[in-house]
Computed example of a mutant assay.
Amino acid sequence: MKMEQDGRLKRLKLPGIYYSMQAILVLEGLDPKEWVKSPFEWRRLKNELEATKKELATCRETLNQFSAILAKYNYEAVQK
Rank of each mutant, 00 (worst) to 15 (best):
E4W: 05
D31Y: 01
G29L: 10
E41Q: 15
M21C: 09
L14P: 00
R43H: 07
W35A: 15
L30V: 00
S38H: 02
G7W: 14
S38R: 07
G16E: 08
L27V: 09
K33W: 00
P15C: 04
G16D: 06
V36A: 05
L9D: 06
S20G: 12
D6F: 13
M21P: 01
L9K: 04
A23Q: 14
E28W: 02
W42N: 07
W35G: 03
E28N: 12
L12H: 03
Q22C: 05
G29N: 08
K10E: 10
Q5L: 15
K10I: 15
L27Q: 01
V36W: 03
Y18V: 12
P39F: 11
I17F: 04
L14I: 10
R8H: 08
S38D: 02
Y19C: 01
K10C: 06
Y18K: 05
E34W: 04
P15L: 03
G7T: 14
L27P: 02
Q22D: 14
Y18L: 04
L27A: 08
S38P: 09
P32R: 08
S20T: 15
D31P: 07
A23N: 08
Q22P: 00
Q22N: 12
Q5H: 11
S20Q: 07
L14A: 06
P32K: 09
E28Y: 01
E34Q: 13
L14D: 07
D31I: 04
I17N: 08
L9V: 14
G16R: 08
V36C: 05
V36K: 12
L14V: 13
A23H: 02
P32N: 07
W42R: 14
D6L: 15
I17V: 15
L25R: 04
L27N: 02
L25C: 05
R8E: 11
Q5W: 05
P32Y: 05
L25A: 12
Y18S: 07
G16N: 07
S20Y: 03
W42G: 00
I24W: 01
G7I: 14
Q5S: 13
P15N: 08
L14H: 06
A23I: 01
I17A: 05
P32V: 05
E41D: 10
E4N: 07
P15W: 06
P15K: 11
I17L: 09
M21Q: 13
L14K: 10
S20N: 07
M21D: 10
L12D: 09
G16W: 02
Y19E: 03
G7E: 12
P39D: 09
S38V: 09
D6Y: 14
K10L: 04
K13D: 13
K13V: 02
G7V: 15
P39Q: 06
K10A: 04
R43G: 00
K37S: 10
K10S: 11
K33D: 09
K33A: 13
L14F: 07
G29R: 05
P39G: 04
L14E: 12
W35Q: 12
L27D: 06
W42A: 10
R11D: 03
P32C: 05
L12G: 01
L9Q: 07
K13M: 05
W42Q: 13
